[in-house]
C-alpha cells in the first residue's frame, strides 16, 4: 500500500459511545468497515474508559495499519471561544496567549492546563479558538499505537459537523446547532464566519430540551434577528419535532446510517 493511498480510519470518541469508519483510498475510495460501540460512561468525563474500549476494538485486524483521524465530542472534551483580532500586532505565541486568556475568561480554571488550537483565519477577523485536555492527544496516540494507527488529525465535533454542513448554511444571521448525546453546541454565523458560540449540557428528557431549543429560536427572533436555525441531530431526536417548530433539520429521514457514523463519512464528502 502506497503511503499516498494509505487507508484512513476515522474515529469518533464520546463519553458513552465510539464510532469507527475505515475508508480505503485510491482511485475509487470506499468505506470498507464501520462500527459503533457503546461505552460504560464515567461520571467525571474521564476519557480513560473510552480509550480502553477503543483499544479493545482496535485489537481486530480490520482496523490495523492506517492513518487515524479522530473526532472528539464537544462535551466534555472541547471548549470554544471567539477571539477578537488583537489591536496590537502579535506573533503566533502572542495570539495563543491571547486566546488562552479569552477561553480562561469564559470557562475559568477548568481549561487552565488545556491545549489550545487556533483556526486559520485571515488577518483582521475574529478567529475561533478551541481548548482540549492536554493529555488527550498523547493518551489517544498510546491507544492507537498497538494497531499501527498514526494519528494525523484530531478535531472537536462541532468543527467537523460545521464543515460537513456549511455548504447548506446561509452566511448571515444563521444558527448552526449540533446536538449530540447529552450536549448541544450552537454557532451564530455573521458574514460567513463564527460570531458567537454556546455550549450546553442536555437533560435525558429530549422533549424538554427540544422545547428549550424552540424557545431559544423564538427569543432570538424576538430580539430582531431574522435568521434561521439549522440543527444537526440524531434521527431519534428529530422524530419528536416538526418543521413548523422553527427548526430546520439538516439530516432527513430515518433510513440514514447512525448519526455518528454519518458524521465520520461526511468528513470525506
Amino acid at each position: 500500500m502506497s503511503p499516498l493511498w494509505r487507508d484512513e480510519v476515522a474515529i469518533y470518541l464520546a463519553p458513552r459511545k465510539l464510532a469507527l469508519v475505515r475508508r480505503a483510498r485510491g482511485p475509487r475510495p470506499r468505506v470498507v468497515a464501520e462500527a459503533e460501540v457503546a461505552v460504560a460512561a464515567s461520571a467525571s468525563g474521564d476519557i480513560g474508559p473510552v480509550l480502553a474500549r477503543l483499544a479493545e476494538v482496535l485489537a481486530e485486524p480490520t482496523w490495523h495499519g492506517a492513518a487515524a483521524r479522530a473526532v472528539v465530542a464537544d462535551h466534555p472534551w472541547a471548549r470554544y471561544g471567539i477571539v477578537p483580532w488583537p489591536a496590537t500586532r502579535l506573533d503566533a505565541a502572542g495570539r495563543l496567549a491571547h486566546a488562552r486568556y479569552v477561553l480562561g475568561d469564559t470557562y475559568g480554571e477548568a481549561v487552565a492546563g488545556w491545549t489550545v488550537s487556533l483556526a486559520d483565519t485571515p488577518p483582521g477577523r475574529c478567529y475561533v479558538a478551541c481548548a482540549m485536555p492536554a493529555t488527550l492527544r498523547s493518551a489517544l496516540e498510546d491507544a492507537l499505537a498497538p494497531a499501527r494507527l498514526a494519528l494525523v488529525s484530531l478535531q472537536p465535533r462541532l468543527i467537523v459537523a460545521f464543515n460537513a454542513w456549511r455548504h447548506l448554511l446561509p452566511a448571515d444571521d444563521t444558527w448552526f446547532v449540533s446536538v449530540d448525546d447529552g450536549s448541544l453546541s450552537a454557532v451564530l454565523l455573521r458574514d460567513g464566519a463564527w460570531d458567537r458560540v454556546h455550549m450546553a449540557r442536555l437533560s435525558p428528557d429530549w422533549s424538554v430540551e427540544l422545547e428549550r431549543l424552540q424557545a431559544f429560536v423564538r427569543l432570538t427572533r424576538a430580539a430582531g434577528a431574522q435568521g434561521r436555525m439549522f440543527v444537526d441531530a440524531p434521527a431519534w431526536m428529530r422524530r419528536g419535532a416538526t418543521e413548523s417548530a422553527g427548526l430546520e433539520w439538516l439530516e432527513k429521514g430515518d433510513g440514514a446510517p447512525a448519526h455518528d457514523l454519518a458524521l465520520l463519512q461526511r468528513m470525506y464528502a
Binding site: D120, R137, R166, L169, P170
Partner: peptide, 16 residues
C-alpha cells in the same frame, strides 16, 4: 448566495 466559510482547526494536522 454566499455561504459560511470553512473553519480550519486541528490539534494535529497543520491548518495552513
Amino acid at each position: 448566495r454566499s455561504l459560511a466559510r470553512p473553519v480550519r482547526l486541528d490539534f494535529v494536522a497543520p491548518v495552513h
